[in-house]
Amino acid sequence: MSPVIIILCVISAALAVTMLFTKSPITSALCLLGVLIMTAAIYGLIGEHMIATLQLVVYAGAIMVLFIFSIMLLNLTDSENDFKKKPFVFILGLAAGITVFGSIVYAILNHFKNEANDKTLGAFSSETVLALGGNSKVLSHALFSQYYVSFEVVSLALLVAVVGSVVLAKRKVD
């Protein structure tokens, strides 16, 4: 692993911790944005340009704008005082988080302990992807041929979500 990636990982971890513990909503949102951009940079450095670009376009460029826009619009300046420390809830949350994180780490370590898992590679090594005409081409081919139905189902689910949110928002206004 290159030292640049390690530095980016450290920065993104620091930003994530800041995001969790800060009291101002806009700092929290901007730290999340920083985490997303750092992850995109890591994807880019390991050669996955397509995923890096999509991360920037979709998450950093669209979703986080919406987050920050609504925080600004609602002007949540007083909510800094709304964060009351409830020790019981905090400990419960901490325990749940540690459990989930621990199981993920355990599962990954277990996976790589097995020699066979470590050495069997998938169908797409970086050489085959390059020979097939680049990452974006391979991904689009897979999406629009093999996974066409699931792709359409996901887009339908998004449409349902949009219609649902409009209906919910309308009811409140009327």
């Binding site: 340009h49 890096a52 999509l54 920037l56 376009v57 950093a60 680049g134 974006s136």
Partner: peptide, 9 residues
């Protein structure tokens, strides 16, 4: 290979 999409980002 993402080219112009990167500009959009």
């Amino acid at each position: 290979d993402t080219g112009v999409l990167f500009i959009l980002a």
